Computed example of a mutant assay.
Amino acid sequence: MKATLHEELRFVRGAVLAKLDGLSEYDVRRPLTPTGTNLLGLVKHLATWEARYFGEVFDRPFPRPLPPRGTDLWATEHESRTEVVEFYRSVWAHTDATIEGLPLDAPGRVSWWRKPEVTLFGVLLHMITETTRHAGHADILRESIDGAVGVDGAAPPSKDAIARCAAIESAARAAQA
């Protein structure tokens, strides 16, 4: 079971990073929602919290300073895309070592949770859920930038998808009448 869960985490991490492929520096950083959500910020956010969950929680701190809370959802002009991606990949290595080195019932403590006592299983499940949730955000952001869809982030929408969107728009307009 641990191997299956770990593989799922690896898969969704890759899906998130793929959403950056082929985009300009501006497009990976620009805010695409009223709250400022952007692709590179999602990567930085996931890296930061994965480092906390698989580091601090299991007394295996990530070996370098993490962004202060509240600054993890966007990359400053001084942080390159390469730096943010390398940060995420280094977190992966640290997390992977924690997952491989501990049993699923290993105890941990999430001090910022209402019920702080956890196991590796619970944190792994939580991180898969969070990464998948943000992968969905990344899907929508990427599609809004250039129409690319799919797990690898590079496929243009099909003619069927474009026609379906037009039909959905027509139904929405008809419903408001």
Results as ranks from 00 to 15, higher is better:
1 M>D: 11
1 M>N: 07
1 M>K: 09
3 A>L: 11
4 T>C: 09
7 E>S: 12
9 L>C: 00
10 R>Y: 06
10 R>F: 10
11 F>T: 12
11 F>C: 08
12 V>I: 15
16 V>D: 07
18 A>E: 12
20 L>K: 01
22 G>T: 01
23 L>E: 00
28 V>T: 05
32 L>Q: 12
33 T>I: 03
35 T>S: 15
35 T>P: 07
37 T>G: 05
38 N>W: 01
43 V>N: 04
43 V>R: 09
44 K>S: 06
44 K>R: 15
45 H>G: 04
46 L>P: 03
47 A>Y: 08
48 T>C: 04
49 W>R: 04
52 R>E: 04
52 R>K: 15
54 F>Y: 01
54 F>W: 00
58 F>V: 10
58 F>R: 09
61 P>D: 05
62 F>W: 08
62 F>K: 00
62 F>H: 00
63 P>S: 02
64 R>D: 10
67 P>F: 01
68 P>V: 09
70 G>F: 12
73 L>M: 13
75 A>Q: 03
76 T>W: 05
78 H>A: 14
83 E>V: 05
86 E>R: 15
88 Y>W: 14
88 Y>P: 03
89 R>V: 08
89 R>A: 11
91 V>R: 02
93 A>Q: 14
94 H>A: 04
94 H>R: 01
95 T>D: 08
95 T>W: 07
95 T>P: 03
96 D>R: 15
98 T>M: 14
98 T>S: 15
101 G>K: 10
103 P>F: 08
110 V>H: 12
113 W>D: 06
115 K>L: 11
117 E>M: 08
118 V>A: 02
121 F>I: 04
122 G>Y: 06
122 G>M: 13
123 V>N: 06
123 V>L: 10
123 V>A: 12
123 V>H: 08
129 T>L: 13
133 R>P: 04
133 R>T: 00
134 H>L: 06
135 A>F: 11
135 A>N: 00
137 H>T: 03
137 H>L: 00
137 H>V: 02
139 D>S: 07
141 L>H: 03
142 R>D: 03
143 E>H: 09
143 E>Q: 12
144 S>L: 15
144 S>R: 14
144 S>V: 06
144 S>W: 06
144 S>G: 10
145 I>A: 02
145 I>D: 02
148 A>I: 01
153 G>H: 14
156 P>N: 09
156 P>I: 10
158 S>F: 08
164 R>G: 02
166 A>L: 11
169 E>G: 02
170 S>I: 04
172 A>K: 13
175 A>M: 13
176 Q>P: 00
177 A>K: 13
